[in-house]
């Protein structure tokens, strides 16, 4: 059940992000939509890695290495999402600075102002 809730929220976030990317014209709103999509995908990935009643794959007094395979969640999605979050942050910063440059050049935040991207 837990997994379904997380996956559902993740899918809803991704869909909201996609909808925003397709309908909005304002660059900042598009960037926010992209961040939503990003977060949704992260949630989906972590949700898929969940194992029922699993704990974090970190060994300490409470979790001995022997027999841990039965007790931990999948560490691979966590490892992927760990880096993806930081990369997402940097990519968002890149998009924002692009938006700033578009605004300085065109005095407008609308994607319509970027005529070179039309096709």
């Amino acid at each position: 059940m837990m997994t379904q809730i997380v996956l559902l929220i993740g899918f809803l976030l991704s869909l909201t992000g996609l909808w925003g990317l397709m309908t909005r014209r304002d660059l900042f709103r598009m960037i926010i939509s992209f961040s939503l999509l990003d977060t949704g995908v992260h949630m989906i990935m972590v949700g898929i890695g969940y194992v029922k009643n699993g704990t974090a794959p970190i060994f300490d007094e409470a979790l001995a290495p022997a027999g841990a395979v039965e007790k931990v969640v999948d560490p691979i999605p966590s490892a992927l999402v760990l880096t993806a979050i930081v990369i997402g942050l940097a990519v968002t910063a890149l998009m924002l600075s692009y938006a700033v440059r578009v605004y300085t050049a065109r005095k407008s935040l609308s994607v319509e102002a970027v005529k070179e991207l039309r096709w």
């Binding site: 194992v51 970190i58 395979v69 560490p75």
Partner: peptide
């Protein structure tokens, strides 16, 4: 809800302590 790890993940969890000596499998 998955009941067990995929073979690859299980391999990482089983071998990381012995091979690398890290507490944190991630």
């Amino acid at each position: 809800d998955a009941r067990q790890l995929s073979p690859l993940a299980a391999g990482y969890v089983e071998n990381s302590v012995e091979e690398l000596g890290t507490s944190n499998v991630v």
